[in-house]
């Protein structure tokens, strides 16, 4: 049993403060991303989430330059961008080319500041850290911040759950029933930015979208009930996160020795795997229905 344990978990796994912190932070972020992700999928806002992550990344690069912790950059730029998207982005559709132009400006600014980071602060690793994340390097003082944000987001989501769901599914009906649809939309996109930026801190600005929409999309293939979908989504996210952390820790002893593989890489691949499996299982059940229908013709 102990030998199996040593095979699965490289020595020192449970003693390391970094690992414990990563597991704690990772679980919180994965859970809240999973819950929010279901709404993102229903509302079709994956692209906005992606853009928010890129804006946050630009903020983190600025934060590096002025030598404050990137978490502040992520959060400030993310919330600002979310408010901007909500007020300006209403008219522009997702296929609108102007959205693409705005996104490319965000990426351009991000690239400039990341360049300046490597050039002036001597943080040669800044691009990797901001774009692809490093869950083991998260500063200890951010733990309470992340915890507070997660709890706030979770509680708010719980409070607005029903009106949000209604206005996501049928905004017209929601308006008739007296739901402040506009306000719901604003609150949601701000919560979304908080979750996306938390994710970016762990997974990097480029990869945080994976943890947000992957488990949620998989969950919607597994069940058609909202509550169950959110539960599945959170569970799948946490599973991917834990497996990713364990594998990344173990990978320190993999070739080429002495360089750990990035956690975010494992999580992306695992999430993709979960999604494909979920889709496969739902396709099989659909085939059964189709066969039954074919015979009556």
């Amino acid at each position: 049993m102990t030998r199996l344990g040593e095979l699965l978990f490289a020595p020192g796994f449970f003693q390391s403060a970094e690992v414990t912190r990563a597991l704690l932070l990772g679980s919180m972020v994965a859970a809240i991303s999973g819950l929010m992700g279901v709404f993102v999928v229903i509302r079709g806002q994956a692209f906005i989430a992606h853009a928010l992550a890129d804006f946050g990344g630009a903020g983190a690069a600025v934060a590096f330059l002025v030598r404050i912790n990137p978490v502040w950059g992520f959060l400030t730029f993310g919330v600002l961008a979310a408010t901007g998207v909500e007020f300006l982005g209403k008219r522009a559709g997702e296929r609108d080319l102007s959205t693409g132009i705005v996104l490319s400006v965000a990426l351009g600014v991000e690239s400039l500041f990341l360049y300046l980071d490597t050039h002036y602060t001597g943080h040669a690793g800044a691009p990797m850290l901001i774009l692809f994340g490093s869950i083991f390097l998260v500063a200890p003082f951010t733990v309470p911040i992340i915890m507070a944000l997660t709890v706030t987001t979770g509680v708010t989501l719980d409070l607005i759950y029903r009106p949000l769901l209604l206005s996501s599914i049928d905004p017209e009906l929601a308006r008739i029933r007296g739901v402040p649809v506009q306000a719901m939309s604003l609150i949601f996109v701000i919560l979304l930015s908080l979750v996306v930026e938390e994710g970016s801190l762990m997974m990097g600005a480029l990869l945080s979208i994976s943890l947000l929409i992957g488990p949620a999309a998989a969950a919607t293939h597994l069940t058609h009930r909202m509550g169950w979908a959110m539960l599945w989504s959170a569970l799948l996210g946490i599973t991917a996160m834990w497996m990713g952390i364990v594998l990344a820790y173990d990978s320190f002893y993999w070739p080429p020795a002495g360089r750990g593989w990035p956690v975010s890489f494992f999580i992306c691949v695992l999430v993709l795997l979960f999604y494909l499996l979920a889709r496969l299982s739902s396709q099989r059940s659909q085939v059964k229905v189709r066969v039954a229908r074919k015979c009556d013709a």
Binding site: G204, L206, L207, W261, V269, V271
Partner: peptide
Amino acid sequence: DVATALILVAALGTGALFLGL
């Protein structure tokens, strides 16, 4: 789009892995 997005994020992750190594 979800499938494509996830595959491409995984590709980005793989790129990060190679760079890390």
